[in-house]
Design a protein around this nucleic acid. Structure first.
Lengths: 107, 107
DNA sequence: CAGTTTCATAACCGATTGGCTATGCGTTAT
DNA sequence: ATAACGCATAGCCAATCGGTTATGAAACTG
């Protein structure tokens, strides 16, 4: 669990990778050449980034003849929101406990 | 904007930093010594991590005599959820457009 | 069949990272 | 006043990272 979570956080920590992912969300499924042109870096670098995103479950690849199309897995982003809501819940629980304490002290 | 966003993603990409942040959310404001004991690494390493979290706006420090207490800024996590909802919106917009197209073709 | 396109992998390189120890400075305790 | 504590900074090091060029394997094209 945590390992998949870690892969997602790591994958999205690089601005180039976030830009690639955003490009796929905006433009839909795209070939490596297409992603490369948008990214402004070499094709091998893009392939490496796509590999990391794929490994994290953030994108899927659909080979089609000699080109491979990549599409985003927006569902994987739930790992992110799940973590943030969990952290917020932990933090809020402390205030709830404090509220209870203050109420009890009030009586 | 994007620079602050980048700092947050980078800060949370390290599992040790996420653990420290989670510890602060769970346990509330804590001194550096307390965080260090929980983290299981050296105090200077913890100070560096806390500095990065603070720089990203994820924690705040309250100096108090010779010790400094750190508390989480859960509000900063909205940057994360904002980005994910934006990506999801981009992706869904493509399906909405496809829906429209199909509906128009149906008529 | 020969040539081109598409992509992934390998090998390399400079920069960054995450850890450590050593140290210094301010604060509290004796 | 001296010692001990709490924290941050500096300097170091191995490991990882993000980019590059070179190369090769498939898949199309003519």
């Amino acid at each position: 669990m945590t390992s998949a979570q870690n892969a997602i956080f790591k994958a999205l920590s690089d601005p180039t990778r976030r830009a690639i992912f955003e490009g796929l969300c905006r433009g839909g499924s795209q070939s490596v050449v297409s992603v490369t042109q948008a990214a402004g870096i070499s094709q091998p670098a893009v392939s490496k980034h796509l590999g990391i995103l794929k490994n994290a479950g953030l994108v899927s690849d659909q080979p089609q003849g000699r080109q491979t199309f990549y599409s985003p897995n927006v569902g994987a982003l739930s790992q992110l929101t799940d973590w943030t809501t969990e952290m917020t819940a932990f933090w809020n629980a402390r205030f709830d406990a404090l509220d209870d304490l203050l109420k009890r002290m009030d009586q």
